[in-house]
């Protein structure tokens, strides 16, 4: 398989009144064509910033350095117009909250056909029939009726299916799904994830699934990237990760998976402590203040990213050993 996306020393910071906020600190990441990669991490670990910055969708307060190669082209060297030409057709994105991702004052039909007419140059009729096909594909009942509706008239699950239809309309090679199910009911969550997995397979689309829930990643990705405080701290094929977890942080995340036998929203165990202040850079391992395995070495020195012979990477001096 060939590389589709390659990030090298990718960094993103924001200038804030409190100083520079480092949201992404030197990320190196390669995503292969056709792969499905999960990015997991707690809230604030930099998942959204990483995926949006990769596409180039950052506000002007953000500074990006390093490079992002998409199909061999360094996106950071492109003009705005050239970069835009990759959006929608090369890379597309789905956001967390379907209630806010659709324009409340425009009909579903016009939001869906826009990419088709503007980007693919389709005529009105052709775009309409393609839109109907797309809505049908994401299992919207009565596509023709739905096209005439406004987002406010539809449920959250329906809206997220429509957002998905919009995102895949121009057949992007790479789809970022940023917490696509977090805002949905549990049963709808499963359906939407299933739909994404199906679409990915039938279109040979590469997908980056961003979530804070390791449980979501388990059934729907080939590989997992664990982020903490703007860095990649562990990456491995999904099966390998669950069988042979190396990072204390990943272990803590796994223990915090919400369980169906618990009242909804309640977690088995929340990781105690907080993320380090993103405006500061402390010496040592970023997870040390919260890590049960931390030693003096961890507090003094930052662990490098280590690669095991099977390709499993982790950023820890004292990786967890043996199967659990």
């Amino acid at each position: 398989m060939t590389d589709l996306l390659k990030l090298e020393d990718f960094r993103v910071s924001f200038s804030t009144p409190r100083g520079d906020l480092h949201a992404v600190r030197s990320v190196d990441l390669t995503i292969l064509k056709g792969e499905s990669v999960g990015i997991v991490g707690e809230s604030g670990s930099g998942k959204t910033v990483l995926s949006r910055a990769t596409m180039g969708l950052m506000p002007s307060t953000a500074t990006q350095t390093g490079s992002a190669f998409f199909n061999g082209t360094d996106l950071s060297t492109l003009s705005r117009d050239d970069l835009r030409s990759h959006w929608g057709t090369g890379m597309a994105m789905i956001f967390q909250d379907p209630l806010t991702s659709l324009n409340p004052v425009r009909r579903i039909g016009s939001q869906l056909t826009e990419g088709l007419t503007v980007r693919l140059g389709m005529g009105r009729e052709q775009a309409r029939s393609r839109a109907v096909e797309l809505l049908d594909r994401v299992r919207i009942p009565d596509p023709l009726v739905t096209m005439k509706k406004y987002p406010g008239e539809l449920s959250g699950g329906m809206r997220q299916r429509i957002v998905i239809a919009i995102a895949i309309a121009c057949t992007p090679e790479l789809l970022f799904a940023d917490e696509p199910t977090t805002a949905l009911d549990v049963t709808v969550q499963a359906q939407v994830l299933e739909l994404l997995t199906e679409l990915r397979a039938e279109r040979n689309m590469t997908m980056v699934l961003v979530t804070h829930d390791l449980g979501v990643v388990a059934g729907h990705t080939d590989r997992v990237v664990v982020m903490y405080a703007g860095q990649i701290v562990e990456t491995a094929p999904t099966k390998d990760l669950f069988r042979n977890m190396k990072m204390p942080y990943t272990e803590a995340l796994l223990k915090s998976i919400p369980r169906l036998d618990q009242p909804s929203g309640q977690r088995l165990q929340v990781i105690s402590g907080r993320l380090p202040d993103p405006t500061k850079t402390e010496p040592g391992c970023a997870f040390a203040p919260r890590c049960t395995y931390a030693t003096d070495k961890c507090r003094a020195e930052a662990p490098p990213l280590t690669t095991a012979p099977n390709g499993h990477q982790y950023r820890c001096f004292f990786p967890i050993t043996g199967a659990n």
Binding site: R52, M55, L57, R84, S85, H86, W87, G88, T89, M91, A92, M93, F95, D97, T100, S101, L102, N103, P104, E114, G115, V118, R119, V163, I166, A167, C170
Partner: peptide
């Protein structure tokens, strides 16, 4: 708003 970012990510001007 998110929907503006979504529109932008479609690659329209």
């Amino acid at each position: 708003e998110d929907y503006v970012l979504l529109a932008k990510s479609k690659g329209i001007s």
